[in-house]
Amino acid sequence: MAKVLIPTALRAFTDGSSEVEGAGKTAGEVITAVTESYPEIQKHLFDEEGKLRSYVNVFIGDENIRNLGGLDAPVHEGDVVTLVPAIAGGRP
């Protein structure tokens, strides 16, 4: 089990939870587990081809998964996975 930190911008899709649990051995599996528990968040994280959206970064600990093998990056018991979407602040 990994702890997944949900940023404010995506909490509307996790019933307001700031932390959820996801089971899996890779970043991709953990995030997919989250999308199975909260289907509405799916399209905000992945595009139609199942690729991670370019305005969402995923970190395991303080490392971007881009440097750890992308969605195949290994996740260990007790790791903290952080989703970091772009936020702009202010008016549209």
Partner: peptide, 20 residues
Amino acid sequence: CLYPSPPPPGLVPSCSEGGV
């Protein structure tokens, strides 16, 4: 380098809609 492209407009509500 961090965000190669922005979210589609309106996906993330602005402060005037989302509050701050």
